[in-house]
């Protein structure tokens, strides 16, 4: 019997080894990466702003989500003008689909957030309205704040769940991912809030830095646990984690996520303990680094999303 030592007519050898997902990071996929980053930044900032009752922060957060994140995702769609089909009552897919839930939550947030911004503005800058009208505005404002707060949290977490649902990508297929993304999003929002506070005032920057410090420490713990957990999982998840730590994506991970996104902001937030008050320019530098870290974190997670090969396990037997 004759044997060949050469593969021929091989159209799909990519399916026998772990292959990177490209749909959400390469080519048009860059838009998904950017929209996820802006989702994280915008929802984080809005959430922190409504807690601190900061109208400008809420406005910027709202604009990031509705004015940047949504259009980016919209442009990414192959058939963008059919987007309404993903919303109830035109579909019941929200019962199982995280992306449908995401569209729904974001749309609700766009509505409630807008009402909240208008009512909060009217309260902040009264224009000689009747007291009964003002009382009604107060009620509407609080209701809108609660509803916008709930929907913004849901908007913030859906990206993580959308990815963690995918069994095809073992590195994402873990309950840790939504928590990592949510925590990072709040930390990013706090960092931007410090910037808003420095520019517009009316914000206790020291308090924000204290909270950021805690969140950054939690971030370190969560990311380390997430990576460690991946190395205990399947070979494909291990490959993803290895690529982040010492492979092709080590540079964006260590420089972008670890140093710019965590170490520098943490060092700046700890600096007052050792060196007294830090200057505004250093604080702004830390905010820029923190934001760059947000871009790097999402890039790293999306870029090391390897599909589990079809025949890999059998081949190893």
């Amino acid at each position: 019997m004759q044997h060949t030592r050469r593969q021929w007519m091989v159209q799909h050898e990519w399916m026998v080894k772990p292959m990177k997902q490209t749909e959400w990071i390469q080519g048009e996929g860059v838009l998904v990466w950017l929209s996820e980053v802006f989702s994280s930044l915008g929802t984080g900032l809005y959430l922190v702003s409504i807690f601190l009752n900061n109208w400008w922060g809420a406005l910027i957060g709202y604009f990031i989500v509705v004015g940047i994140k949504l259009p980016l995702h919209f442009v990414y769609l192959g058939r963008p003008f059919r987007f309404w089909r993903a919303l109830p009552p035109f579909t019941g897919a929200w019962r199982t689909s995280w992306i449908a839930r995401g569209f729904f939550f974001t749309t609700l947030y766009a509505g409630f957030g807008l009402i909240q911004l208008i009512t909060s503005y009217l309260i902040l800058y009264p224009t000689g309205l009747d007291s009964s009208v003002v009382n009604t505005i107060f009620v509407v404002d609080i209701t809108a704040k609660i509803l916008a707060g709930i929907t913004v949290v849901l908007t913030a977490i859906y990206c993580g769940f959308m990815m963690s649902f995918c069994k095809s990508v073992p590195f994402w297929n873990t309950g840790m991912l939504p928590i990592v993304i949510m925590n990072a999003g709040i930390a990013d929002g706090l960092a931007l809030m410090i910037g808003v506070g420095l520019y517009f005032g009316g914000v206790d920057v020291m308090m924000l830095e204290a909270v950021t410090r805690i969140l950054l420490l939690v971030n370190i713990l969560l990311i380390a646990t997430y990576l460690l957990n991946a190395t205990y999982g399947t070979d494909t998840a291990k490959l993803s984690a290895k690529e982040l730590i010492s492979g092709k994506n080590a540079l964006p991970f260590w420089v972008g996520v670890a140093i710019a996104g965590i170490a520098i902001p943490l060092a700046v937030s700890l600096a007052p303990y050792f060196m007294g008050e830090v200057s505004h320019s250093v604080q702004i530098f830390a905010i820029v680094c923190h934001t760059a870290g947000a871009f790097a974190l999402k890039y790293c997670i999306l870029n090391v999303g390897y599909y589990k090969p079809l025949l890999y396990s059998e081949m190893r037997k």
């Binding site: 749909e23 990414y76 192959g78 089909r85 993903a86 992306i99 649902f165």
Partner: peptide, 30 residues
């Protein structure tokens, strides 16, 4: 994962796509 129910199961078990409903989010591909 399909956000529009474009991908659906027919009564005979075939998983089919209604291209007129698909918005091209590529979630199913992933």
């Amino acid at each position: 994962v399909c956000p529009t129910e474009a991908t659906h199961r027919r009564d005979d078990g075939i998983v089919d796509i209604n291209s007129d409903l698909c918005i091209g989010c590529r979630y199913c591909v992933i």
